[in-house]
Amino acid sequence: MPKDSPVDPRGPRFSAWMTTVILAIVLLTGWWRLLAAQTVLFAMCAFISLKLNPWGHVYRYAIQPRLTPTTEREEAAPLRFAQGVGFVFALIGTLGYATGLTTLGMVATGLALVAALLNAALGLCLGCEMYLVLRRYVPALARPQ
């Protein structure tokens, strides 16, 4: 898996707001194709590179130049891990909506929205802090360094 360089922490916060809005639209409309697109986006960021995130580009070209520069940097590993957690919930949500299990779709999308909103509003990455717990139940997360 290629390694991403550290990023301006305000970029991921902006992305998290966009993700929150998309997931809210999915909940309100039940438009599962939009959720499927979000699932693909999560997968690309988690498994290929954060550079594939279109919101990151929007941030860099439209928002960052208007803000005071910061030397603060955030490591990419926690961000990619968070995208992976988002991917799992969005995938379950998509499958739920697409197969008519609407309640499952709503619950999974709702949980993804909770995580995205906490990340956007408080800079909090639930999946990262709870990694130890997740790992206990999902042994596949353990990988050699």
Partner: peptide, 8 residues
């Protein structure tokens, strides 16, 4: 952990 931003 590697995935922990607040650890820094």
């Amino acid at each position: 952990t590697t995935f922990c931003a607040p650890c820094r």
